[in-house]
Write a protein that binds this DNA or RNA. Sequence first.
DNA 1: TCTTCGATTGTCT
DNA 2: GACAATCGAAGAA
Length: 196
Amino acid sequence: MVLERDFYLLPAQAVARGLLGKKLIRQINNQTICGYILETEAYDGERDEACHARNGKTERNKVMYGPGGYAYIYFTYGMHWMLNCVAGESGYPAAVLIRSIKPVMGLDYIRERRHPIPQEHWTNGPAKLTKALDITGELNGVDLCSKSGGLFIEEGVTITDGQVHTTARIGIQYAPEPWKSKKWRFVTEIMSGVEG
DNA sequence: TCTTCGATTGTCT
DNA sequence: GACAATCGAAGAA
């Protein structure tokens, strides 16, 4: 079942927690690639000094200002694409960065794109998973609640609170406190025991 | 195993 | 003109 819009209209932290264990699905060229979401980060509003919306609305971040459930995909470090899903109501800029997934379908497709890198390193980073699933700026703004965009999220496995670990966000050393230390990174350790 | 550092370009000041 | 929500190779230990 594809996750419905309501799921994404909650605050970014709730969406980030809720996405753990859900299935990220990419359909391209009649192939389906999918994996369980293992790691996310919440970016919450213009007041969050680590959020791209901290300086207001721009051409780059405008998708974040729309309603939740759409893909916000941006380019950084001159070579990497990042996948986020927009959270919250329309008008409030918030998003959840997908940092890591466990691939369970379309392994041949990923292997082709990521060789000779070992399997455990295929999708364990935000730029790695976009490369593995062929996610680029062309998908910026697609509706994650619709299968027609080629990128969407479905119900997956249940993750209990005991399986969730929270830490400070990664790669935002430029941000001042308290934002730098907010524990808005959500990680789960279900690498084994999950079958597609 | 750990740390350092180069790659490479869109976006904003 | 500065720098970024990163990766992975190379070198040190």
